[in-house]
């Protein structure tokens, strides 16, 4: 019988095993000090967010706990966690992600202290999100490939249709990547929707792989696995800075740009911390930190001086695409992309 008792005890232990762990978790979230730490989902890459948050902590004494997620994952999680938000703010990520989130009711309005210094196209009209950086699309090509094939860097969307690029282009998959949907917006702005899809069908012949992440094709292009692709400037410059032999060029027809946002989560456990972070981000400090650390977003504050010549947009044709239009049409355009482009 003693053995029986032992086993029963063991089973009870097993049943309760997770109990204490549960309550420990719950207590942890309840006893956590307010004000001291702000929890954040960052769509901005970890290496940038780490540096930026370090500076924020230095300036304000508020610590930032964060997890980096892709824009889709971040939004899916925030929606799933609506009843019990795990974070106080969303950091980075394209403005159309915020537009989609507003429809799900996951954001609270907050206009940061210096938001009035940020141009209207870089922030939500209703005060649901505030832009922290601007990133145009660009072409990124492997210099050795261009030389071997006797090509000049592409300067028109049509250059990418050249058969010389057959099976060598890598660019992002529209289902997962904001970079890819930005590419579709750009093409629509340049040539209209139906023409844009006809173009993409032709472009498909030259595609080697649609990568899941927006920056996914940059490394293969750097190492010569692929020849060229379309990227956000921040990803293109990042790989260029690592020392690879690459060329950045822009199409004469123009490109659209993404606005990286920041927003306060509805039901945040530490809204004051989140607001402090957004206030700080609306000040000149954020832009200065980005410039100093070679984080290549174009600051949303026009009064921050950008030193990198690659970020000088005076010679680039920038096309305006309305954020709300992007948000409303995204799903439809991606479904059309699946139906017409990758399934042919």
């Amino acid at each position: 019988m003693k053995k029986l008792q032992n086993v029963v005890a063991l089973l009870v232990l097993l049943a309760l095993c997770m109990g204490p762990v549960f309550s420990a978790g719950a207590q942890e979230s309840q006893t956590k000090k307010a004000g001291g730490t702000v929890n954040v989902y960052s769509i901005m890459p970890e290496k940038y967010a780490t540096k930026i948050f370090e500076e924020f902590t230095k300036d304000t004494g508020i610590r930032v706990n964060f997890v980096r997620l892709s824009s889709g994952e971040a939004l899916a999680r925030i929606i799933a966690e609506k009843a019990n938000p795990q974070v106080d703010a969303l950091w980075g990520g394209p403005a159309d992600t915020y537009a989609a989130g507003i429809l799900e009711g996951v954001f609270d309005k907050y206009v940061p202290s210096e938001a009035d210094k940020i141009p209207a196209q870089f922030k939500s009209a209703d005060g649901y999100w505030t832009g922290i950086g601007v990133i145009p699309l660009t072409f990124l090509s492997n210099a050795k490939f261009l030389k071997d094939k006797g090509l000049t860097p592409p300067t028109s969307w049509n250059d990418l249709l050249n058969p010389a690029y057959r099976n060598t282009l890598q660019m992002a998959d529209a289902r997962t990547s904001g970079t890819a949907t930005e590419r579709i917006y750009s093409l629509i702005m340049v040539m209209g929707e139906d023409e844009a899809y006809a173009y993409q069908k032709k472009l498909h012949q030259n595609i080697q792989l649609y990568t899941k992440g927006g920056a996914g094709g940059a490394m293969p292009i750097a190492t010569g696995q692929a020849a060229s692709g379309v990227f956000y400037i921040v990803d293109a410059l990042d790989i260029l800075q690592q020392g690879y032999d690459l060329v950045i060029s822009y199409p004469v027809e123009g490109v659209t740009y993404g606005v990286e946002g920041s927003g306060l989560i509805r039901g945040a456990k530490n809204p004051e911390g989140a607001k402090a972070l957004m206030d700080w981000a609306s000040s000149k400090r954020l832009g200065e930190v980005m410039v100093a650390n070679q984080i290549n977003y174009i600051p949303t504050r026009p009064d921050v001086t950008v030193t990198n010549p690659a970020l000088d947009m005076s010679k680039v044709t920038l096309l305006e695409a309305d954020v709300n239009w992007k948000g409303e049409n995204r799903s439809r355009l991606v479904e059309r992309w699946i139906e017409e482009v990758i399934q042919q």
């Binding site: 892709s70 994952e73 899916a76 529209a174 997962t176 799903s331």
Partner: peptide, 10 residues
Amino acid sequence: YLMITGMFDL
């Protein structure tokens, strides 16, 4: 996975 993470379509 793509549908959930990319299309926000749980």
